[in-house]
């Protein structure tokens, strides 16, 4: 089972890189000025109160001990307690993921729905009006910051037309409809740059595959242009598109931090950003590790998708 062997090797690599990342994150946060006890008690606290809290939080233990404690906690799902919220960090992150994960998924879906047809159409009629429109869209879409698109959407759609909400999130308990409505504009803002990148890659990939021999053979066998396109060209052009989708994940996450900020969504990005400004470093530490985990796991999934999409890779180790 070469595929299984490959997967286990990849998971091994993932664990090692994740471990290195955790070490880097831990050391950076450790080096940050001001420890949890003095931040929690404020600047006017008596030194012995701070010392007492320090030992209660285990901050007086050696560095390696605390790192091992954190790592052990991460593995068992106990991420510690937030200094500012006073609740377990794991629950806090889970609550916020319930906003960020749907947001990024809707945005990704939206960007695929925009870019795939647009890119294929543009490639099918190079230099036609759709192609011009597509290349214009991909150039401009990449250049425009997503948080600015968010502001423009609030200005034009929410305030101007009075459609949808300009920001905030009612929570999933308010009903799927209401929660979904609050995610529409943020998803669009997040999806525009993504679809610009994907349109460009799709177009280039389809053009490249169209010129290959097997597509010409298919046409020569009497397959119609449309059938050759959808049966042979597009499936083979999907590989670079999926690669790009994987490469875009870090940008999608950065984008989510910004877009959540614009629309005041209580997502993981807002959590990270607020935790930083309140110096709730234990939250920062865990959120950053979780982001890293997400990026790496998604990259692994993208790699696995390759094998599904390209049978030629199946036998390869």
């Amino acid at each position: 089972m070469p595929a299984l062997k490959k997967l286990s090797r990849q998971i091994g690599g993932l664990v090692i890189t994740l471990w290195i990342a955790s070490l880097v994150i831990f050391l950076l946060i450790e080096a940050a000025p001001g420890d949890a006890a003095s931040i929690m008690l404020g600047t006017n606290a008596a030194p012995d109160t701070v010392a007492a809290l320090r030992s209660e939080l285990g901050l007086d233990r050696p560095l390696l001990w605390r790192y091992a404690g954190w790592l052990g906690g991460v593995l068992s799902g106990d991420l510690g307690t937030s200094y500012t919220y006073g609740v377990p960090v794991a629950g806090l992150i889970a609550d916020r993921l319930a906003v960020t994960v749907p947001l990024t998924l809707i945005a990704t879906l939206l960007s695929i729905l925009i870019s795939l047809p647009l890119g294929v159409w543009a490639a099918n009629r190079p230099n036609g009006p759709v192609d011009t429109l597509a290349s214009l869209f991909s150039q401009v879409g990449i250049a425009v910051p997503n948080f600015w698109i968010g502001l423009l959407l609030i200005l034009g759609v929410a305030l101007g037309l009075g459609w949808l909400t300009p920001g905030g999130f009612p929570g999933w308990q308010a009903g799927i409809g209401a929660a979904f409505e609050a995610l529409i504009l943020p998803s669009i803002a997040l999806a525009v740059p993504q679809s610009a990148v994907l349109t460009r890659v799709t177009r280039a990939a389809v053009i490249e595959v169209t010129n290959e021999d097997f597509v010409r053979t298919a046409r020569a066998k009497g397959l119609s242009r449309g059938r050759a396109l959808w049966r042979h060209t597009v499936p083979n052009a999907l590989l670079p598109v999926v690669t790009m989708l994987g490469l875009q994940i870090p940008f999608l996450i950065s984008g989510a931090v910004l877009v959540e900020n614009v629309f005041t969504l209580p997502g993981i990005g807002t959590l990270a950003y607020q935790a930083l400004s309140q110096r709730d470093l234990i939250v920062v530490q865990n959120v950053v590790l979780m982001f890293t985990l997400i990026v790496m796991v998604v990259n692994l999934i993208v790699d696995a998708l390759y094998t599904v999409l390209d049978p030629r890779l199946r036998g390869r180790v």
């Binding site: 950076l28 946060i29 930083l276 920062v284 959120v287 890293t292």
Partner: peptide, 12 residues
């Protein structure tokens, strides 16, 4: 990604 490193480095 830059924003994530900036959050980490911002703490530092």
């Amino acid at each position: 990604p830059p924003i994530l490193s900036a959050i980490l480095l911002g703490a530092l």
